[in-house]
Design a protein around this nucleic acid. Structure first.
Length: 455
RNA sequence: GAGGAUAUAGCUCAGUCGGUUAGAGCGACAGUUUGUGGCACUGUAGGUCGUGGGUUCGAGACCCAUUAUUCUCCCCA
């Protein structure tokens, strides 16, 4: 059979892993710098845990796992009946009761709900693990991809939002990616909907205006009309969308429009806090841009929302997050507020690769290759190699006795800097020959001297 | 879920108007002094042309179906 990969999945070679780890390490170190601690959760969750948390579109993209034992003859009849429900688009435990996780936030909420008695609040955790979505793959979109999440639960303070924005700014500055950190509040969007008398249409409104920079004003208006908004409502939304300028100008204009609304007032205060707080307190603010068209698809957000876009690359968002005030409520533990952000490593990788932002030495390879020139020669080499390894120098020996040519080429392919050659001559004098393959220079060393060499 | 594109050697791709034995570059392997690599040269291996039908004297090429991949939309990281 001809082997192949499932759609939207990838293998990673050593070079790619090196670059990915470079990104992971920077994100991880910044998370820890800000006091977040790691947890991990299983690849699969009970389907109940995930369903209904991501909206209708999201639910469709959850990978479901077929139950085992459906071929058990004793259960054939009930299995057939259960499958009828599947054909009608319903989920049923009789056929599938587990699913691959769709994101890291809901599993985290499940974790908090199960462990809140033991957790010290506010609880700050980070999590770096793959997630799966049954989406159609395309540029920057995969069916298996990594998310790096940092969340704080058990605190309503907006200082958390400030910290998370700082994490975004710090990570992307370390990675060398120029970004815009877009910020908005769901409360602002809610206020807009209330004011134009379409509170029940808030989802339709946000979905439509979220597309503004992609499809333009006219198309957004068309879509609003299609979604049942009336003309005077659309005109009001148009005014809202026309807001632009620097952050301060935008906020003034926004106050003018929705500042009298109680929800709107709160939303504006939130945004002002997150923007202004770091200015007075050595934070990173230059990348934060208010964007009142930002909506985000996930329907559990209730306050500040974030989204990060790379400035110099055509790519969807490379990070996103926001505040959710009652995520554990659906798991029976009410009143735990939370706020979090997420990094899309696979997209960050694509952006960095395109902009050539990876340093040269990210992929660590072997430092020293011992040539194999015969049985007794390789024995001596082996002994020396073990002693170098004890000094944390990455070594390997060519396993077969082979021509120089072949061993040199092997070293070259693996990007190995040093070759150590031990032949009969060297063996008889207890010397080794060390060759730098990049410069071509070589020297003889007494074995004792070699151990002092700075590789 | 909707639409477009592609499928030929391990990889990237040529292959004209349908014509006889399907090509190149790269890679792999071997050799050009059995103790000094990268370069160069020589040679070798490797293909049921995605799969199944059809048209034709003749199909890698044309038609239909199918599968896979990829891009766009929806949605999203």
């Amino acid at each position: 059979m001809k082997p192949s990969l499932p759609q939207g999945t990838r293998d990673f070679n050593a070079n790619v892993i090196g670059k990915r780890n470079y990104i992971f390490n920077i994100i991880r170190s910044v998370f820890e710098l800000y006091g977040f601690q790691p947890i991990e959760t299983p690849a699969m969750e009970n389907l109940d845990t995930l369903m209904g948390k991501y909206g209708d579109e999201g639910d469709k993209l959850i990978f479901k796992i077929l139950n085992n034992g459906l071929d058990n003859i004793a259960k054939h009849e009930s299995a057939r009946q259960e499958f009828e429900k599947i054909l009608q688009g319903k989920n049923t435990k009789g056929i599938t009761e587990r699913a691959l996780r769709y994101d890291l936030t809901i599993p985290f909420a499940r974790y908090v709900a199960m462990n809140h008695g033991q957790l010290t609040m506010p609880f700050k955790r980070y999590q770096i693990q793959p997630v799966w979505r049954a989406d159609r793959p395309q540029r920057g979109r995969y069916r298996e991809f990594y998310q790096c999440d940092a969340d704080v639960v058990g605190s309503y303070s907006l200082m958390n939002e400030v910290e998370l924005a700082n994490i975004y700014a710090t990570v992307f500055s370390k990675l060398g990616i120029g970004v815009e950190i877009k910020i908005n509040s769901r409360k602002v969007l809610a206020a807009l909907a209330e004011i134009i008398g379409g509170a029940d249409k808030i989802i339709d409104i946000t979905i439509a205006i979220d597309k503004l920079d992609k499809i333009g004003l006219e198309k957004v208006k068309e879509e609003l009309a299609q979604r049942g908004l009336e003309e005077h409502q659309i005109n009001a939304i148009e005014k809202y969308l026309a807001i632009n300028g620097a952050n301060e100008e935008k906020i003034i204009a926004l106050k003018d429009l929705i500042g009298d609304n109680e929800t709107g007032k709160k939303g504006i205060e939130e945004i002002e806090f997150v923007i202004n707080y770091p200015k007075e307190n050595f934070g990173v603010t230059s990348e934060i841009v208010t964007d009142f068209t930002l909506a985000r698809g996930l329907n559990y957000y209730t306050g500040i929302i974030f989204e990060v876009k790379a400035k110099d690359a055509e790519m969807g968002s490379i990070g996103g997050g926001g505040r959710y005030d009652d995520l554990t409520g659906t798991f029976g533990v009410p009143n735990i507020a939370g706020v979090g952000i997420s990094f899309g490593v696979d997209r960050i990788y694509d952006v960095m690769d395109e902009l050539k932002l990876f340093p040269d030495n990210v992929a660590k390879s072997t430092q020293v290759l011992f040539f194999n020139l015969g049985e007794s020669e390789s024995k001596m080499a082996f002994g020396i190699m073990q002693q170098l390894r004890a000094k944390n120098i990455r070594c390997e020996i060519y396993p077969d006795q082979a021509k120089f040519d072949k061993q040199f080429k092997y070293a070259e392919k693996k990007d190995i800097t040093y070759a150590i050659i031990i032949g009969t001559e060297e063996m008889n004098t207890n010397m080794v020959k060390l060759k730098n393959l990049q410069t071509g220079t070589q020297h003889n060393f007494a074995v004792e001297e070699l151990f002092k060499f700075d590789f």
